[in-house]
């Protein structure tokens, strides 16, 4: 069983943390993700091999934060790209 992991989230990404947690909880139902201010805590409920080691967990957390930020920040450009004129 993996220990609890605590990940510090910088100011630049804190706005996207909640969306990232929602997404992470959906993708990895065997882990619990909790947001405490700037800190994101990950509790393995049951190891299913999908999120190997601590580094892998951290990486996936950051990837989700990046993805949420990219999504939010590019949404208006994206809409204009798809708009038919």
């Amino acid at each position: 069983m993996l220990p609890k992991v605590s990940i510090e989230i910088s100011d630049d990404f804190v706005d996207y943390a909640e969306a990232a947690v929602t997404r992470l909880s959906y993708l990895y139902p065997n882990y619990e993700f909790a947001l405490q201010g700037h800190s994101l805590e990950v509790f393995p409920i049951k190891s299913d091999g999908r999120l190997g080691d601590i580094n892998e967990i951290k990486r996936q957390v950051f990837y989700q934060l990046y993805r949420q930020r990219i999504y939010v920040e590019t949404l208006s450009i994206r809409k204009s790209l798809y708009a038919n004129d």
Binding site: Y63, I70, Y71, T74, S76, I77, R78, L81
Partner: peptide, 11 residues
Amino acid sequence: SASNYTPLRFR
């Protein structure tokens, strides 16, 4: 900044 990039995806 939010105005100078378009969607990117990575793996």
